[in-house]
């Protein structure tokens, strides 16, 4: 019902932010995620950041976040891979 994609917040200025989506950078409105900091992964829908993602959980479930961080690491010339724990299937809440 609603497409939303995770992206990394790389710049912030008031309620405007710039996110990076694997080499695609766009301006988003961050008024709904005031707690998000530069470097956080946020969920983007229709030009708005709608939530800050819990980084640990996100890395486990999102292949593309893993990919992106891997790519960033590769670029930085590091050889180590992101530590991955077994995925958590969620618990009854």
């Amino acid at each position: 019902m609603c497409l939303a994609v995770p992206a990394k917040l790389i710049e912030q200025d008031g309620q405007q932010g710039i996110v990076d989506l694997h080499g695609n950078r766009l301006r988003v409105n961050t008024m709904m995620t005031p707690e998000a900091q530069t470097g956080d992964w946020i969920l983007i829908h229709a030009g708005f950041a709608i939530e800050r993602l819990d980084p640990e959980a996100a890395r486990e479930t999102w292949a593309l976040i893993k990919d992106a961080e891997q790519a960033a690491e590769d670029q930085a010339g590091q050889s180590g891979s992101v530590a991955r724990t077994n995925r958590n299937n969620g618990g009854i809440v």
Binding site: L3, V5, L21, H22, G23, N24, L26, I44, L64, D67, A68, A71
Partner: peptide, 12 residues
């Protein structure tokens, strides 16, 4: 390319 895949995801 990952950048294409993710741009496509963003645009649906």
């Amino acid at each position: 390319r990952p950048e294409s895949k993710h741009a496509a995801d963003m645009l649906g």
